[in-house]
Amino acid sequence: MATETEDTAPTKPAENKCEEADEPGSPTDKEKQLSRKSKSNITLFFHATGNTPILKKRKMIVEATRKIAYVSSFLRRYLRLTAAESLFLYINQAFSPSLDQTIENLFECFGTDGVLNVHYSTSQAWG
């Protein structure tokens, strides 16, 4: 998963509004919480797993049409990972999304309480 394709290394991380955030609500009854109309921006919450450092800024607002590769390269820069280091992203604490999957699709299917929770780890966590 160390490979990256689309949307590599955007040079202006300041565009991503990052804020301090509390622990998001527990993942229950996702369907009722989801807004039915498609959103143009989606809020991501990052959760560190294993020995991976916790981010100071855990919330990120990202355009719905962006791909997971964009989030992955953002996190890699933020965590100052070298090309040789791996970064694994997980949705639902269960699976790694494909790097060309859109944020919109993941939010539609796995969003909770209006946010998409993303777990990240520098070592493999959930198979």
Binding site: M1, T3, T5, E6, T8, I91, N92, A94, F95, S96, P97, S98, L99, D100, F110, G127
Partner: peptide
């Protein structure tokens, strides 16, 4: 910009298993 890299069959395997897990989720 268009294709993901595929260095080995293990990469295909990990993609396949992840997609299966997503479907089961």
């Amino acid at each position: 910009n268009i294709l993901l890299h595929c260095g080995s069959r293990e990469v295909v395997e990990s993609h396949f298993m992840s997609t299966l897990k997503e479907a089961d989720a």
